[in-house]
Design a protein around this nucleic acid. Structure first.
Length: 227
DNA sequence: GAGGCGATTGCCT
DNA sequence: GGCAATCGCCTCT
């Protein structure tokens, strides 16, 4: 994939090399897109969460998949920045993170929600699969599982590189962060669905654009009942 | 090798 | 608001 737009590629890598809680708010309002053989879907990011590293690291995060160290599943989170970490959960949902921090250190930003600004027809078709009712446009990419589905993302994309600008011909991912001076009102709070210490107000590592209908509702982690 | 559970979602009551 | 669906990964035996 064409990796380096002249200046933007370097700027993107510089941004993504920082700790995730620093990067995440900067992603709000930016564009994130994915193109494959079916076409491209592009989002304006409206909700993100930051995740850190393992116990004993310089950014320990008991709510992160990396908390117990590197495994085959989370290896991408320890990889170089400017790539994506895709995981599969609940037996049916995928979610996508942008890997942050230099290689060897773990961190990432979970893209939780966005407003579809390009490829809405394709996103609608993907989201409609297996459903009785149509999906409102504001909900096409509301929630990490829905967002991954709208973008056509699955485990085969884990570790894929991120380009700094959209190449309208090449398949793959691209990211265009928001301009730092864009002063849109932002909310922040505890991360959704994170259990244990990582879900406490001490980790207010979720950010969203206020007043956006595509932002997912907050849900605290619910301990699963035993059968 | 087995068992538990999850950075969720959508339907049902 | 409650809860089933569904399976790969992780932990423990």
């Amino acid at each position: 994939m064409s990796q380096d737009g002249p200046l933007t590629g370097a700027a993107l890598l510089e941004l993504l090399s920082r700790p995730a809680p620093e990067v995440a708010p900067r992603l709000l309002g930016g564009l994130f897109g994915h193109r494959n053989g079916e076409g491209a879907v592009v989002l304006r990011i409206t909700e993100v969460e930051a995740y850190g590293g393992p116990d004993g690291s310089d950014l320990p995060d008991p709510g992160a998949h990396t908390w117990r160290g590197r495994t085959a599943r989370n290896a991408s989170m320890f990889g170089p920045p400017g790539h994506v970490y895709v995981y599969f959960t609940y037996g049916m949902h995928h979610a996508v993170n942008l890997v942050c921090r230099p290689e060897g250190t773990a961190g990432g930003c979970l893209i939780r929600a966005g407003e579809v600004v390009e490829g809405a027809a394709l996103a609608r078709a993907r989201r409609a699969a297996g459903r009785a009712r149509p999906v409102p446009d504001a909900a096409l990419a509301r929630g990490p599982g829905n967002l991954a589905k709208a973008l056509g993302i699955d485990l085969s994309h884990d570790g894929a590189p991120l380009a700094a600008a959209e190449d309208t011909a090449a398949p793959g991912f691209f990211l265009r962060p928001a301009r730092p001076e864009s002063g849109a009102p932002v909310g922040s709070g505890p991360r959704t669905g994170v259990s244990g210490a990582g879900g406490t107000p001490e980790f207010p590592w979720r950010w969203w654009l206020l007043g956006e209908s595509s932002v997912s509702p907050y849900r605290p982690a619910v301990p699963r009942r035993r059968r």
